[in-house]
Design a protein around this nucleic acid. Structure first.
Lengths: 335, 335
DNA sequence: CTGTTAGCGCATTCAG
DNA sequence: CTGAATGCGCTAACAG
């Protein structure tokens, strides 16, 4: 019935001349084993290149050493940095990541959650690509759950999301501090929470400085195309603006094209700032685009640490925790 | 010692009034169980909302229902589509994906492989971001391994990679078929296998048509900046070119900028085609950029299917299998 | 068709 | 400090 010739604890114990029990303790570095036998066992294990069978170990320990990572869209640019940070953070603690992409489908998501539960994940991280709240998975899950980027709508859950109000504020403050006074805001989809929050932050900063907002687009989209057309219109209706805040780097890139097309010098005549700090978009333009970074890697790392602690017993916080954004100044705002 | 109140097969069996063995068979839909008891067991399971413990099941079955996905750079744009396709394909077969990102570090990769082995993955998919061959993980692994995108240097391994020679050929053929005769090739990094293969394909197509290549850059990079500067130089030295093949969409995007800056109409005066079909880059320009798609999703799906079959016993092929690229014609080559 | 009996590989009492 | 015994939850023979 022995399926494979994989070396097991029995083999190690035999070679070391001890019982499996002792071998187990030795390999787990338990204190109640004499140093001498401990090294003997370790050597035996090494010479057989023994590797613990994680399934068996988990079964008896009641812990799988695995966390689930449930994402709604891997394609998007938000899940990935979070996922990477999490994989990194957990990896350091010898925890593996079980990845599931629900493709934005609730049915599929439910199925995945059940599978993850069956696989006995020790914790679950739910990552979305919008900062609008999502339906909670419920509190009946037998492991801690953290909602990252996209918060849960249940205040009893723990959510971790960027503070876009603060993000909007630092964008505006940066422009104000570099002397801009005619600031326009080209929005992303206005129904999106991120766009609304940033508008709030921008308004707060401007109000605090007694500077009125020059213009805000009524409508918005997250595309470069929209950034281009919106900025062209903006330059027609408000030719005197000296700064534009765009709700994403893609929008900002379109805006930059438009500014150039209209002969505005950037940043001399008009400053420009985006959101996301997506290097692919911002770094290779002329000049490179300043942007607000949502610190997604930090988000992922913090979520991982809290989940790790939760696995170890210290309960997860409750409610929504917001993390600061960070301004990355580049050529479109500073010469 | 019972750690949690999780419902087990024992509970289900008791409620259904059968033995655990029968309950197990019933839930696994084995034929040697009477229909009546089968449904009775199923009902019991449902009413207790029983969920199999995957660890226990795997331990006794000798299969974990999990495959490892080892990537060297998640950030890049090549791993992700493959990963998504794999996650998708395996998901349909109730197999979960254990994700590990080695960050291009060989030491870390070794550690991850050991961890995955300890977790008893049923198969492993190794994904890279270059088509240059990589060192094999060796043939001693106790599960089937597929190298995807980046092939292994050991012909005994199974590798699946895009056919960039064919990709180069269809790019050139497309331009020829639309009447172009002065075709230039702006390369990516010339030491990269992908760039070399495409050059071969382009040359083959042109030779077959008796059309000489107008120019090929000596040097190359995978950046937009390079596309811009290379194309500007190209227009100076070869003002009469009527088509440009770029080794990536980013390069092509830079090239498009340069063409516009020099007042060339695209595609009327000069046609343009890139590689990768990265919608983010190609879809939103004016006009949208034609591109060669490497069918990465297909690559991921096929690898998954073969691995799945390998788990079921039919051995993996050996050597390198190349999959066709596909031309996506957009505004830069057809009006 | 159903139940009994053995493990899967390891960690953990609890005696020695 | 060490080892024999027990169980984690489930599946796989093998008898009935």
């Amino acid at each position: 019935m022995r399926r494979s010739k994989a070396v097991t604890l029995v083999d190690v114990a035999r070679l070391a001349g001890v019982s499996v029990a002792t071998a187990s303790k030795a390999l787990n570095n338990r204190s109640e084993v004499r140093e001498a036998t401990k090294t003997r066992v370790h050597e035996a294990a090494r010479s057989l290149s023994f590797e613990h069978n994680a399934m068996a170990r988990s079964l008896s320990r009641g812990r799988s050493g695995t966390v689930g990572l449930l994402t709604s869209d891997l394609e998007g640019r938000f899940s990935l940095p979070i996922l990477m940070a999490a994989e990194d953070a957990f990896g350091a603690d010898e925890i593996s990541v079980l990845l599931s992409d629900a493709r934005g489908d609730a049915i599929r998501e439910q199925r995945h959650v059940r599978t993850l539960a069956a696989k006995q994940v020790d914790a679950l991280m739910v990552v979305g690509s919008l900062t609008d709240a999502r339906r909670s998975l419920g509190s009946a899950l037998p492991f801690p759950v953290a909602y990252v980027y996209t918060p849960s709508d249940d205040p009893a859950d723990f959510s971790l999301t960027p503070d876009n109000v603060q993000g909007g504020r630092i964008a505006a403050e940066h422009l104000l501090s570099t002397g801009r006074r005619r600031i326009a805001h080209v929005r992303g989809l206005p129904t999106a929470q991120a766009a609304r929050d940033r508008a709030l932050g921008i308004d707060a900063a401007l109000t605090a400085s007694g500077v009125p907002l020059a213009h805000r687009t009524d409508y918005g989209e997250w595309t470069e195309r929209w950034g281009r057309s919106a900025t062209l219109m903006l330059l027609d209706t408000h030719p005197d603006i000296d700064a534009v805040i765009c709700d994403s780097d893609q929008i900002a890139r379109g805006a930059l094209d438009a500014l150039h097309a209209r002969g505005r010098r950037v940043p001399t005549d008009v400053a420009l700032i985006g959101f996301d700090n997506w290097e692919l978009i911002t770094a290779d333009t002329n000049p490179p685009i300043s942007s607000v970074d949502m610190n997604l890697d930090l988000l992922g790392r913090r979520a991982s640490e809290l989940l790790f602690a939760a696995i170890d017993g210290s309960p997860l916080p409750t409610g929504v925790e917001r993390t600061d954004c960070r301004l990355v100044a580049r050529g479109t705002t500073i010469p």
